[in-house]
């Protein structure tokens, strides 16, 4: 909100130049300080493996600080490292699929490595898989072929949904079973448990009524009220999610600070 209050027009040229110079100066000083620190740590290390480790820690710290620089504003250093990350992530992903999946699960089986009989019929599966690559063609005439594997996976995924749905909802410990089992008085342990179970079922049904679109909510007073209370009750779930999200997000930053302070700067942990 305050962002909207901030002046959106560019500051005058002179001021902008001053800010830019200050930014460059601060960046330069920080870079010099970090470089000196890394060099000193490497020089003071005991042996080659320690020196290597100090260099690696330094590299990791530079990466961390480079990304943090985005908080000040978008800048070329951040953008560079962002591209590097995209590259490394893609390269690693493809590499690991090759060595962990394609080689042991296909190649070794097909050529019969490690004493197993060769099964040359396995050649057919990557050939079917190659149809994915028609995605690279812009021409619909060719691009069309890539739909064969896409819809194959879609078809089997969609039909699997039934199995999953019934397991999830009506299985032995299924969600629906559990909800309504809970109201039976003999399943409760004590009065407090029974009250909780009743509250539970009531909330679940009220929230469900919010998703009940077979009747118009406006014309049906009962549904209107239950849907409205369902909306309030859903806020409890969203509030809990916000509460735990704060913890989750802060953890991510604490992890980086832990690295910077303990691992890199060597504060006692």
């Amino acid at each position: 909100m305050a962002d909207q209050v901030q002046p959106t027009a560019d500051p005058p040229d002179a001021r902008r130049a001053r800010v830019r110079t200050a930014e460059l100066a601060v960046t330069g000083v920080l870079a010099a300080f970090i470089t000196i620190y890394i060099v000193v740590r490497i020089a003071r290390a005991d042996d080659t493996s320690q020196r290597m480790l100090m260099l690696q820690y330094g590299l990791a710290a530079v990466c961390t600080l480079a990304i943090f620089s985005f908080l000040y504003r978008e800048n070329p250093i951040y953008r560079f490292f962002e591209h590097v990350l995209v590259g490394l992530a893609t390269g690693y992903f493809v590499g690991i699929e090759v060595v962990n999946v394609i080689i042991p699960n296909w190649w070794n089986k097909m050529v019969g490595a490690k004493g197993a009989p060769a099964e040359w019929s396995w050649i057919i599966f990557p050939i079917i898989g190659l149809l994915w690559y028609f995605q690279l063609f812009r021409n619909p005439r060719w691009n069309w072929y890539s739909r064969i594997p896409i819809f194959f996976f879609m078809g089997y995924g969609a039909s699997l949904a039934y199995k999953g749905f019934f397991n999830l909802m009506f299985g032995e410990k299924g969600q629906v079973m559990d909800t309504f089992r809970a109201v039976l008085p003999f399943t409760a342990v004590g009065a407090w448990d029974l009250i909780n179970n009743l509250i539970y079922v009531a909330i679940a049904l009220l929230v469900l009524s919010y998703f009940f679109f077979s009747f118009k909510h406006e014309t049906n007073p009962l549904l209107r009220r239950s849907a409205a209370s369902g909306r309030y009750l859903m806020m409890i779930a969203f509030g809990s999610i916000f509460g735990t999200t704060v913890m989750g997000r802060m953890s991510l930053l604490i992890d980086r600070l832990y690295f910077l302070y303990h691992t890199w700067l060597g504060l006692p942990g």
Binding site: Q56, A60, C63, I67, L85, A89, L252, L253, R256
Partner: peptide, 24 residues
Amino acid sequence: YDTFFQYVRIPLDATIFSLLAYYI
């Protein structure tokens, strides 16, 4: 491999997500 994976890729990935702490 270790340098690129453990000391470049992991810090970059983890730090990008840690920006969310500031935003929240």
